[in-house]
């Protein structure tokens, strides 16, 4: 009788310990995920390549902020370079899903025709169009 009671108590203690271990495991999981994702949120002196419709585009900035899975923000002095153009600007937002990059800060663009200066830009890479906003000056070689 006493043996049976002891066995039951031991089983209950084991179940409680297992339950506690599972609870501790769950608690430990949360901070780990947070630290991991925080490391991916911002990177300094960043450069990488993005594959889009216009081919391979090299991007770089003083600081990269990842907003979500599809959106990144290039903080500070930034650039986008591919075989068609080189865009040098500041604070550039990139939507990787829609293939749109934009900035409302002054921008300098160099392409095979010449050099362009504008107050901001919106690059609709999927449509093959770049809209330069504000006063624009485009000095060409021909």
């Amino acid at each position: 009788m006493t043996n049976k009671l002891n066995k039951k108590i031991i089983n209950i203690i084991i179940i409680i310990i297992l339950g506690l271990q599972f609870f501790i495991y769950l608690i430990n999981q949360k901070p780990f995920t947070e630290n991991f994702s925080q490391k991916r949120i911002s990177v300094e002196n960043f450069s990488s390549i993005v594959l889009s419709k216009s081919g391979i585009t090299k991007i770089g900035s003083e600081k990269l902020n990842k907003i979500d899975e599809n959106r990144i923000y290039l903080e500070g002095e930034s650039y986008l370079e591919n075989k068609e153009y080189k865009i040098y600007g500041k604070n550039i937002s990139i939507n990787l899903l829609d293939e749109i990059s934009s900035s409302s800060d002054p921008v300098k663009v160099i392409n095979s025709m010449g050099t362009l200066n504008a107050k901001g830009f919106k690059n609709l890479d999927y449509d093959g169009k770049i809209i330069f906003m504000g006063k624009v000056e485009f000095v060409t070689k021909n």
């Binding site: 216009s54 068609e84 392409n111 362009l116 504008a118 449509d127 093959g128 169009k129 770049i130 809209i131 330069f132 906003m133 504000g134 006063k135 624009v136 000056e137 485009f138 000095v139 060409t140 070689k141 021909n142």
Partner: peptide
């Protein structure tokens, strides 16, 4: 040999249709 384009509002570069 240098020429230029100036715009007060915007300039759109359409690389697919090859125009500005």
């Amino acid at each position: 040999s240098e020429s230029y384009v100036k715009a007060g509002e915007s300039l759109i570069w359409d690389s697919e249709n090859k125009n500005y």
